[in-house]
Design a protein around this nucleic acid. Structure first.
Length: 572
DNA sequence: GCCGTTTTCGGCCCGACTGTTTTCAGTCG
């Protein structure tokens, strides 16, 4: 049973308990445990076997529950609860506006067990006839069933971010808005977002809201007020814009940036000190005085905490670290001095070497690597040894014309199914830099994939493992392998692990970055650009690395060229 | 059910909105 399945099972248990009217804190315990387990990068059973107290939010009771799940695929508690509420009824909770209480009542009082039956009950008036449910509630549920059926799920950040930026730019230019920021999961650089939350300040709110609802990106308007408006954008993403008094901008931004778990923990921390945090300020409960914050920094400072960057607000250990000033100084986009993974027309890229060099110079980089595919990747016009050498010659010629940047000869070499490399060792040794990547045989067992990666990592010619898990955001899961073993090997051999910045990859992902760094490995952050404009994707890689706690000194391509060259020449 | 440099018992985040009520439960973020 995978961690995601364990997490889903705990989440379902929480929902079932809530339908029975169970103690809300017991419910919250299951929800917290589910979130903690979804974040783990090692099998939950492995961790519990090593350290039964090793997962925050999982105590002895839920640990037993998980062990039972792993051993039998279900639990006595779940079976018992399902006798009262079948799984299909729990699925009704996915409809907005249908919570545990309503789902329980439509089942018990109307016999509704699925979406179609709920829809029928909403249409024929039985839903509205329930106590404390009226015609408006029933109509709302009906509308939300339609929306739920159309909905495609969460939006990748690679799509949401440019969209958000275009809207922010339009509002800043066309209306009288003094401050405007995107909050929510977008600001935290989560790999997918559920909606867009904007926070702003304006002394002419009508101009801002009127412009928002009339933007070409807007499909339909849900609400149009002076302090809050909601719209559905083309493509189905919802955007909420809140405007506040200047003195509360910081509090509102903090509130809507979240995450939910971070805010819960922050407020618990505040309560223990006699303080109450909300989007309207910080109240001293003894004196009832409220402090206002026009920026976020002030809130954390007033609580005696180091400022917590949005990417770290995950409800993990960030508050505990901030108390003792122990948060890492995270890498910034401006720390990067080069991009070490890109393609050209020599393989499957669509720009020449020279065009890519000019783009890298325009980015302010002082070094870069040209890393086209090896022959094994036929679909990408991978290079034979002969073409690789001819390309190296062209790189040297281009390099002579651009002394302001150091251009490394490199290749993204296929790691074959058995872990051998797609170029012989003596050819690899001719290159300045070698990226080893998996592009095939992705359905190996974890043992096979681990051995494959270890063999590549142990090869002294391999410097970087490119997109190590091969996962695709919202698509394939990627290769399963023994992460502790592979990350430890990377640390031992000095092989870097890539954070591929392409928003459809983000691989390593945030939680893997953290695990790799804790194992002592270093990373690179590269765009895998196939055209000049792809180099702009670097911010997504940096955001992901920051979520994993990466500092500049953890990232090879944030260091000076001399350090980079010394690293590349190790063991040679 | 979890958790503790205030606690091994007694707490557990905060507020808005909606629709239904006539004081509040449910849902959401």
């Amino acid at each position: 049973m995978l961690n995601v399945q364990v997490a889903a099972a705990l989440e379902e248990t929480a929902n079932l308990l809530e339908m029975t009217g169970e103690n809300v804190f017991r419910i919250r315990a299951y929800q917290r445990a589910a979130e903690a387990i979804a974040d783990l990068r090692e099998p939950v059973g492995t961790i519990l076997a090593r350290d039964p107290k090793g997962i925050p939010g999982v105590g002895s009771g839920i640990a037993d529950h998980i062990r039972e799940l792993l051993a039998t695929g279900t639990t006595k508690l779940t079976v018992e609860l399902h006798q009262r509420f079948p799984p299909e009824v729990v699925a009704l909770l996915q409809v907005p506006g249908v919570g545990p209480k309503l789902a329980a009542r439509v089942y018990e009082e109307l016999g509704v067990t699925n979406l179609d039956m709920l829809e029928a009950a909403a249409i024929d008036g039985r839903l509205a006839s329930l106590p404390r449910v009226g015609t408006k509630s029933a109509a709302n549920v009906l509308k939300n069933i339609e929306g739920f059926r159309r909905r495609s799920g969460r939006t990748p950040i690679g799509i949401a971010r440019p969209l958000a930026e275009s809207i922010i730019a339009a509002l800043l230019e066309g209306s009288n808005v003094q401050r405007l920021a995107a909050a929510g999961s977008l600001r935290r650089f989560q790999e997918t977002v559920g909606d867009l939350d904007f926070v702003g300040v304006s002394d002419e709110p009508k101009s801002v809201m009127d412009l928002l609802v009339s933007l070409p990106q807007v499909d339909r308007v849900l609400g149009h007020g002076l302090t809050k408006s909601s719209v559905i954008l083309l493509g189905g993403l919802q955007l909420d814009l809140r405007l506040v008094e200047p003195r509360d901008f910081g509090s509102l931004l903090q509130h809507f940036t979240g995450s939910a778990q971070h805010n819960i923990q922050l407020r618990e921390y505040a309560v223990a000190r006699g303080l109450k945090v909300s989007e309207y300020g910080l109240e001293d409960m003894a004196t009832s005085t409220v402090r206002h914050f026009d920026d976020e920094e002030g809130i954390y400072a007033a609580l005696g905490l180091q400022f917590i960057p949005p990417e770290l607000r995950q409800g993990r250990d960030e508050i505990r670290l901030a108390v003792r000033n122990g948060l890492p100084k995270l890498i910034e986009l401006s720390d990067l001095k080069g991009d070490l993974h890109m393609h050209t027309t020599w393989s499957d890229g669509s720009a020449s070497i020279e065009a890519m060099v000019q783009a890298a110079i325009a980015k302010g980089y002082t070094y870069m690597a040209i890393s086209d595919h090896s022959a094994g990747l036929g679909v990408a016009r991978g290079l034979t040894v002969e073409r690789l050498r001819a390309q190296a010659q062209e790189i040297r010629e281009v390099a002579a014309r651009y002394p302001e940047i150091r251009i490394l000869t490199a290749s993204e070499v296929d790691i074959r199914a058995d872990g051998s490399m797609d170029f012989p060792d003596d050819v690899l040794a001719e290159l300045d830099l070698v990226i080893g990547s998996i592009h095939s045989a992705m359905n190996q067992t974890a043992d096979e994939a681990t051995a494959r990666l270890l063999k590549a990592i142990e090869n002294p010619n391999v410097d970087i493992i490119g997109h190590p898990t091969t996962r695709i955001v919202g698509g394939r899961e990627g290769v399963e392998f023994d992460r502790p073993e592979v990350f430890a090997a990377a640390a031992r051999t000095g092989t870097a692990l890539e954070v591929n910045a392409n928003p459809s990859r983000l691989d390593l992902r945030d939680t893997d970055v953290r695990m790799a760094l804790e194992a002592g490995a270093r990373i690179t952050i590269d765009t895998d650009a196939h055209v000049q404009g792809n180099m702009d994707l670097m911010e997504f890689g940096v955001g992901t690395a920051r979520r994993g706690g990466a500092r500049a000194q953890d990232v090879w391509n944030a260091g000076p060229i001399d350090d980079l060259l010394a690293w590349l020449q190790r063991d040679r």
